[in-house]
Design a protein around this nucleic acid. Sequence first.
RNA 1: GCCGAAGUGGUGAAACUGGUAGACGCACCGGACUCAAAAUCCGGCGGGGGCAACCUCAUGAGGGUUCGAUUCCCUCCUUCGGCACCA
Length: 822
Amino acid sequence: MAERDYNFIEIEEKWQKTWEEKGSFLNKVDKNKPKYYVLEMFPYPSGRIHMGHVRNYTIGDIVARHKKMKGFNIFHPMGWDSFGLPAENAAIKNNTPPFKWTSENIANMKTQLKRLGFSYDWTREVGTYKPEYYRWNQWIFLKMLEKGLAYKKVSSVNWCPECQTVLANEQAENGVCWRCDSEVTQKELEQWFFRITKYADDLLAGHDEIADTWPEQVLTMQKNWIGRSTGLKVNFKLETGEDFPIFTTRPDTIFGVTFMVIAPEHPLLEKISDQKVKDFILKCKSQSMVDRTSEDKEKEGIDTGLKVINPFTGDKVSLYVGNFVLMEYGTGAIMAVPGHDVRDFAFAKKYGMPVKIVIDKPDAPLKLEDMSEAYTGEGVCVNSGEFSGMNNKEAIEKIADYAEKKGIGERTINYRLRDWGISRQRYWGCPIPVIYCDKCGTVPVPEKDLPVVLPTDVDFRGDSQSPLTRMPEFTKVKCPKCGGDARRETDTMDTFVDSSWYYARYSSPWSDKIFDEEEVSYWMPVDQYIGGIEHAVMHLLYARFFSMVLNDLGLLKTREPFKKLLTQGMVIKDGSKMSKSKGNVVDPDEIIKKYGADTVRLFMLFASPPQKDLDWSDKGVEGSFRFLNRVWRFLQKNRELYVAGSAVKNDELSAELKKLRIELHRTIKFVSHDIEERMQYNTAIARMMELTNALYAISEDELKTEAGKKVFSEVVDKFIPVMNPFVPHFAEEMWSDFGKKSFLAEEKWPEFIEELTVRDEIEIVFQINGKIKAKVNVSSDISEEEMKKLAHADPKMAENISGKQIVKEIVVPGKLVNIVVK
RNA sequence: GCCGAAGUGGUGAAACUGGUAGACGCACCGGACUCAAAAUCCGGCGGGGGCAACCUCAUGAGGGUUCGAUUCCCUCCUUCGGCACCA
């Protein structure tokens, strides 16, 4: 029989078609099997898939295919995060309606994904831009409204006075409008919020459940993002007698307050008539939040002329407006203790405010005139009335006790986390289902009227105004309560809402309820979630929040949506992220055309471990292609040697064949370990390459013996299934080429024999004081005593020991002997 | 600035729990095959020194802990991700 070439185009088309026809990847509820839900973050349909997607989905596919071979009932869906800004930008630029643009992109990208051979159940596909999906966004919104989890308040947005439009942060970079370069200002608007802060403690407590299965860095980032701190709310008073509460985590420094600072947005400031102060407030409001709070920007402030009274000391101090104080955090005002806070110190120096020491170092007392920076360490309270002499840690509690007893303050818990603003003054998103009536106020759209359908026939007129605002057929409605004329909300939802619950909708995208009870309770939660590290905080926190809300509504059985999380690194080329502007984008389709999907998949996994960034290299891809050809040629060349169902006996093997067999079983063991325990696919592939090198090293004569044929046949039976999750088309083709009737997609993961994973001989090293002096080959079952004996007998070692005193001898079994001498 | 990571040969990386630094691949060099080239197969490949056995230096920089540190601790440098309206 003639040897065949590795014709990947033909092979990949053939198997993709076969899998589809056989329905190999349809996911069905089967309560007799353990389920496994593999999910990759769904893409935004920008038009073409990029290498980052290929990497993400290849990792997911290897998990899905491997777990399936291990006997799990797999759930592996895919869909589209299909609302968002880019569709509107495209609409403005090309005058293409977002719906059309998005639908076409989805069709293209789906074809691209199919070409990569991913094992998705496409009958579960969701698209967040479809009314049958987003109606449930609206439904959840109504439930949240009922439970008081959705509410409206005034909040500011980036505003371009020239374009008369709201800008996203990325459209307002460096404080100028992306379209007209005008200075961006802030504008206050009434907006909808989700009360995620109510779930702050739940979100923190939930971390316990996923502590061992999520990357620690993600948990840390979320913890810091939520930023729970216990402190004291202290009721300062204005000179006029008005209450002026502030929040502090450092009540031990309260005797050191020399001034107060208030946020520019604080309502108290509305009464101020001083023009200079008014101008300053306007200036602050036009600064972006990043600018205001970043440490490298100068802290700025201005005296309001108001005075505040410290309830502990009775001192009267000045009240400043400061750009670095945020209305969203605490009470929107702070007490300034320049002696013991870095930022307050800098501010005090700039504006000539006094500094007071209230915590001192017992061993090296502070001197006011020598202080060049705030002292933020621990110490003993001084100048602090009855609390003087106390350790400051103790004083924190004592001062809080005192404040509570006297009614001038109370212990409170404060969060850095802010409520989630979901209103977007944009067209391409899910309409917020409320109606405004002059008589009845804000009226929720009744459930029976859902979905509020987003009109798709729209005119963008080349500007970034939401077309919804000029569509009376959308905005003019009757009030559901009184039947009078009313106006529909034209704001749409943040797209993070869409992606906060899609993982559960996959279970039953066809359902006319939010979820099909049986499907969702069987498949949820996600067992393995995979996506970029850039989502560590926002998306993953919002999704957890939604999952908890849905759990409280009785719609999901678990609180945590993602049992295990893998955060993958970016795909880099020539040292930076692939992007159009840098011109370093590699199109997956071109590479597939040249080398095939299996090579692309293999390279994506081989070039770097999943968590790390991956450097794209054209030469490296060729290496992966070369490896597949090498395996292909070896198997083709020796195809005639294959004997189906032959059983190998170890004692009939030559030393060379036995060694090869051990390498085979070691390969299965290590690849299994790398996939299951470590999710480190680059080393798994390296193992497979080593086995291939060992196959080439065996002599032809040896392979042609009866025993050789049996070992070769075992290699075929076990190695091809091992390759399957990585290069599924290649593996299926080989499998059928060796006369197998089954599909690898339905096959079991091969087993290894533990005794056959131990090499007969191992190399150990001898050290003197931790420096290697000799390496020797020994039998792998050597005892510690024998190792020690051999170390002493070694001439090189003896030379280094002689005339010296042995202090210690360390034996690490199977590794080394270290003799410490003096 | 704040929060979170990463830094190892010419290069992508490996070393899993503190125990042989550089597995596997790329590039490069040499050999075989060929009229020749490509492909393929075989071999070499961190730096410095030595004819050689071998010696010595080396995991961003500097210190520390340890018999032994890429791995743990401290300080610093550089790069990357996130910072609430990109997704």
